[in-house]
């Protein structure tokens, strides 16, 4: 399907060729057929990568993990929190 031919890859800093190759080979395990990596830079991610493949979003960014950590701390760490 048309969606799958372009896969957007968002990283906090530009990828080296080697990193791009590794990413491509890992992704080929799930994505059948040829596809193109479209790169985008978003420094707010801090580290990691966000992959947008058609309708699926794979978020491996440090930013999101920090947010999840924050949520957990607020939820479990503090005895009585007033609503956000």
């Amino acid at each position: 399907m048309r969606d799958r031919e372009k896969v957007k890859v968002i990283t906090p800093f530009p990828l080296t060729d080697e990193q791009k190759d590794i990413l491509y080979s890992k992704l080929s395990r799930i994505i059948r057929g040829p596809f193109l990596l479209e790169e985008e830079i978003d420094p707010s991610l801090i580290g990691g990568v966000v992959i947008l493949w058609g309708e699926i979003l794979i978020d491996c960014s440090v930013k999101t993990q920090l947010e999840r950590l924050k949520e957990r701390i607020l939820r479990e760490g503090i005895p009585h929190v007033h609503g956000r």
Binding site: L52, E55, I56, L57, I58, D59, C60, T64, Q65, L69, R72, I73, E76, G77
Partner: peptide, 14 residues
Amino acid sequence: IITTYRPEPEIEEI
């Protein structure tokens, strides 16, 4: 919480 935290990729439909 911080020391036992295990980062995991999130997969969502968009």
